[in-house]
Nucleic acid binder design. Structure first.
Length: 97
DNA sequence: AGGGTGACCCGCT
DNA sequence: CAGCGGGCCACCC
């Protein structure tokens, strides 16, 4: 199973509403490990549960970032939720601060 | 205990 | 403005 740290990360990601996205840094900060953005990616990459909408987590510079099933799929899912994406960049208006 | 890993980030060139 | 280098962190052998 996962330890409390990973659980916290999943919980935070699950709280991201449809049509919004959060950054890896944002999730790391809310999880209490502000400099562990990279680790957040590790945890989400490992995740396979459809209950965790990890496609809603993007890079701080606005780029969509990686995805287990491919960046294309991540973009598709976000667009389906109404998120505006130019190239591989999400509109800043969707990013939670 | 220690080195390897990665869906990241920042500063410098 | 694009690349590169180094830092970063928790986890996994």
């Amino acid at each position: 199973m996962y330890d409390s740290r990973a659980q916290r990360i999943f919980h935070i990601v699950r709280s991201i509403p449809r049509g919004k996205v959060a950054t890896y840094t944002y999730v790391a900060r809310k999880a209490g490990v502000p400099k562990a953005a990279r680790y957040v990616g590790n945890v989400l990459g490992n995740n396979r549960s459809s209950r965790v909408p990890c496609h809603r987590v993007v890079r701080k510079d606005g780029h969509v970032g990686g995805f287990r099933d491919g960046t294309r799929e991540k973009v598709r899912r976000l667009r389906r939720e109404g998120v505006v994406i130019r190239g591989n960049c999400v509109g800043a208006e969707h990013i939670l601060q």
